[in-house]
Design a protein around this nucleic acid. Structure first.
Lengths: 258, 258
DNA sequence: GCAAAAGTGTTGTTTATACACCCATGC
DNA sequence: GCATGGGTGTATAAACAACACTTTTGC
């Protein structure tokens, strides 16, 4: 959606293609340089940052819509993508919009009504992605994008700060019950890498030896016979996820601490 | 909503009051006679059983809508009520309905279209209630109600079996991380009562002594100086939840097994 | 040879599990 | 006095938490 014509059609007639009152807001979480990052788009008008959301097609299964939106925005497929909450309580999610507010926000000159004025509840998904594989596509509404460190999220449009907060809280809770990392790390990774990843997500130090014992003990990762030379004084062993055990743990859940 | 006139108005004009495309389906879980029960309503036509759902008013915050619907159906306020999933994947949640299907289902004679034909996603909530305090109200669409044992749920309308399953699965998972029982038991209860409750929810035996040690050790319940004579050979001590510790555990979460 | 990073085991403590007998009551 | 259900403690095993030195490598 890039030409002015397409945009006008979307604003005027999008409700014929998409369900009104509902949007999907994915919190795309990547990991880079020992920091957790969230992908935000800069929306036209207002200089506002927001989530790379989208709408559900009228006959499209919900989870398919979530995957489609993510794919359209990032080029990624086959992601870890999980629904975590539906937001419909904040003032922004109760009010309808006005034509003035809308035109100001997006720098448009719509007259009359559009389905986009209507109250819209947002379905929150979060995705864990390999930072380096993402190629972001912007469109008419989104003029820029940026990966933001989770500790430095700017004020977002609508109630989206709450959405991001809840996504991160869900992730931190879930890491105690499900393995995480398959989509955040390269296929082969080192112990220090996954160790730092967990420390970053949880925001606290984890004992080096206990951590390794735990993951290997649970059978989630296995040591390979390769080492990688990644810099001065450093040639750590490589590890790999045990796919079966990993999938199993995802399904069954684990009850444990770190 | 009981008179024919009200029903017709709801079918024809309900979309002016309620958001289309969204419903709230509460899974109301009660506990009685050492069994977990789910409250189901019998809908007119088709002899079908289903959840006591409702719609969201256009300017009503989502969680308020959920509480309102529950209150309208059961007379209960101030419940433990929690959103757990939004359902939008099953064929029933993708298709639109036809006038014939609709009229057959509800024994109505609508002509033309209604907002109720449209694709509707369902927001799943589950509530834990004191079985004995519920006074169910039926309306035009719901001719009967019954508490069903969780192991004997009949085939439900649409994809609602999946909704109930997921509610129960969420409850079973959550019981490991949050205290449960405040809304399922009377204010004062006995150890065997709460013990059996947990066994019922989890579907497995829990050691009597270890269970008591755990709950008292966590400070969630405290023993009172009273006993209750409840039958032959039985005069167990009464216990009470420690409100502060309980609320705190709800917020913080607990990581433990039983 | 020295600075930086990775690798590796042991111990004390806490937590979980398994297990059985006595007491009180109602009949 | 006996049948039923409630109450209570201990010993073993497993999991967790705390802790520091050695090895490798690049410069």
């Amino acid at each position: 959606m890039n030409s002015q014509e397409e945009v006008n059609d979307f604003v005027k007639n999008g409700h014929q293609q998409y369900l009104p009152h509902l949007s999907i807001d994915p919190v795309i979480i990547g990991y880079h340089d020992q920091q957790l990052k969230v992908l935000l788009l800069k929306w036209i008008g207002l200089n506002g940052w927001g989530l790379p959301g989208g709408f559900i097609q009228r006959r499209e299964p919900l989870s398919q819509a979530a995957h489609r939106i993510l794919h359209e925005r990032t080029g990624l497929e086959d992601l870890f993508l999980q629904q975590f909450h539906i937001f419909g309580d904040s003032p922004y999610r109760v009010q309808e919009r006005s034509v003035n507010e809308f035109n100001e926000t997006y720098g448009l000159a719509i007259d009359g009504n559009t389905w986009l004025f209507e109250r819209t509840l947002s379905i929150g998904y979060f995705a864990l992605v390999d930072y380096s594989k993402v190629s972001v596509r912007t469109d008419f509404f989104t003029v820029d994008y940026q990966w933001w460190d989770v500790s430095e999220i700017p004020p977002l449009l609508f109630d989206q700060n709450e959405v991001v907060e809840k996504a991160l809280a869900t992730l931190r809770l879930q890491i105690y019950h499900q393995p995480i990392g398959y989509n955040l790390l390269p296929e082969k990774f080192t112990l220090p890498e996954i160790h730092t990843l967990y420390e970053t997500i949880l925001g606290k130090k984890l004992d080096q030896r206990n951590f390794a014992k735990k993951l290997v003990g649970l059978g989630l990762i296995k040591k390979l016979d390769e080492q990688r030379a990644i810099g001065p004084h450093r040639s750590p062993y490589l590890y790999q996820f045990e796919k079966d055990a990993y999938e199993n743990a995802l399904k069954q859940g684990i009850v444990h601490t770190y």
